[in-house]
Amino acid sequence: MPRAFVTGITGQDGYYLSKLLLSKGYEVFGLVRGQNNPKIDFLREELPEVKILTGDLMDTSSLIRALAAAQPDEFYNLGAISFVAYSWENASLTTDVTAKGVLNALEATRIHAGDDISKVRFYQASSSEMFGKVQEVPQSESTLLWPRSPYGVAKVFGHYMTINYRESYGMHASSGVLFNHESPMRGPEFVTRKISMAVAKIALGQQKTVSLGNLDAKRDWGFAGDYVDAMWRMLQQPTGDDYVISTGETHEVREYLDVAFNHVGISDWEKHVEQNPAFFRPAEVDLLVGDATKARETLGWSPTVSFPELVAMMVDADLARLQA
């Protein structure tokens, strides 16, 4: 039975990845920072097979202890402060967790593996936010990185540190440069879930308007369940590498609104949407669209859920939650 160790297991990707690994017969160990995490009860209820270990990405010794307990074949580092807007409010903490946390995870893995450096295969969750002020369209593995947020800068550090450990120590370490990926498990602070929840409430007469930021921002949105499959495929390759994971399609926030409201029979959605300058980023990322050719050709990966299907899935899930 293969064994996997997952940080950020209480997040969206941790949930879908754990489900995938369990379905493949893995023994899954999840790292949680303290026993007071409000999502632990949900994790235990939804995925009781997951074995919970305590530790902190900012504490290398705790990671080494957790790895000793889990004895994993694969380490998926999904843990981060992942809300871009918050990274401006607390750039220091974002850097400690999202940047230095990767270094701590890599170093703990190296120490745990000892002389057998290939003992543990390592996955780092990189991000399309690293491209920031995009230098070419679409963005691929060779595109120059130009992050435009403290979060993006932190992710760049983790990305290059993963490459450095691969090249310096021969570690089987891969980075997945994942473009925006959503699901009904997405946190309510993210724009896609903020919209799906608002649309559901408006459709049920529980809310009249939703306040948003830049409606012209363009993103490459896919389904999180598809993207965790790509993570797993990376660690099944003979050597570590970097892969862009994306749909190759770009959609404005306006398009997301259009599909979401039309799904519940509301065509004149403009009267339900307000733009608030408070939700605009200090430095906007205007256009993200990925080129996942390498992932398709090397990993045999491709997305299975279309943009309209993804939006409908999220709206329907929030409608069901509210009606329940």
Rank of each mutant, 00 (worst) to 15 (best):
residue 161 M to W: 13
residue 13 D to I: 07
residue 209 T to E: 14
residue 228 V to Q: 04
residue 206 Q to W: 09
residue 286 D to W: 12
residue 75 F to P: 03
residue 195 I to C: 01
residue 194 K to M: 10
residue 175 S to I: 00
residue 84 V to S: 12
residue 239 T to H: 08
residue 243 Y to V: 01
residue 184 P to W: 12
residue 90 N to S: 04
residue 51 K to R: 15
residue 178 L to G: 05
residue 315 V to W: 01
residue 171 M to G: 03
residue 274 E to A: 08
residue 19 K to T: 10
residue 37 N to Q: 10
residue 47 L to C: 11
residue 261 F to T: 02
residue 86 Y to M: 14
residue 269 W to L: 08
residue 156 V to S: 06
residue 61 S to Q: 14
residue 88 W to H: 03
residue 54 T to V: 10
residue 98 T to N: 07
residue 48 P to E: 09
residue 40 I to F: 14
residue 236 Q to Y: 02
residue 48 P to K: 10
residue 66 A to K: 02
residue 9 I to D: 07
residue 3 R to K: 15
residue 183 S to F: 05
residue 200 A to D: 00
residue 25 G to V: 12
residue 275 Q to L: 05
residue 79 G to I: 03
residue 70 A to C: 10
residue 217 A to C: 03
residue 10 T to N: 15
residue 284 E to I: 08
residue 158 G to A: 06
residue 188 P to S: 15
residue 103 L to A: 05
residue 274 E to T: 03
residue 234 M to I: 01
residue 172 H to W: 10
residue 201 K to Y: 06
residue 79 G to C: 08
residue 9 I to E: 06
residue 114 G to C: 05
residue 51 K to S: 14
residue 134 V to L: 11
residue 54 T to K: 09
residue 145 L to E: 07
residue 31 L to N: 13
residue 30 G to M: 11
residue 30 G to V: 08
residue 257 L to Y: 08
residue 216 D to W: 06
residue 6 V to E: 07
residue 199 V to E: 01
residue 132 G to P: 10
residue 117 I to A: 07
residue 208 K to G: 06
residue 142 S to I: 13
residue 249 E to N: 13
residue 263 H to C: 08
residue 216 D to H: 13
residue 105 A to E: 02
residue 13 D to T: 06
residue 241 D to G: 03
residue 92 S to F: 11
residue 283 A to I: 12
residue 68 A to W: 02
residue 128 S to Q: 06
residue 230 A to C: 00
residue 98 T to G: 01
residue 18 S to P: 09
residue 6 V to C: 05
residue 67 L to W: 03
residue 280 F to I: 05
residue 264 V to Y: 04
residue 188 P to G: 05
residue 319 L to K: 02
residue 55 G to C: 09
residue 140 S to G: 12
residue 227 Y to Q: 09
residue 23 S to L: 08
residue 57 L to Y: 07
residue 31 L to G: 07
residue 242 D to V: 15
residue 15 Y to M: 04
residue 88 W to I: 01
residue 73 D to H: 00
residue 283 A to S: 11
residue 13 D to W: 01
residue 106 L to N: 03
residue 171 M to F: 09
residue 130 M to R: 03
residue 114 G to P: 09
residue 185 M to A: 04
residue 304 T to V: 04
residue 76 Y to D: 02
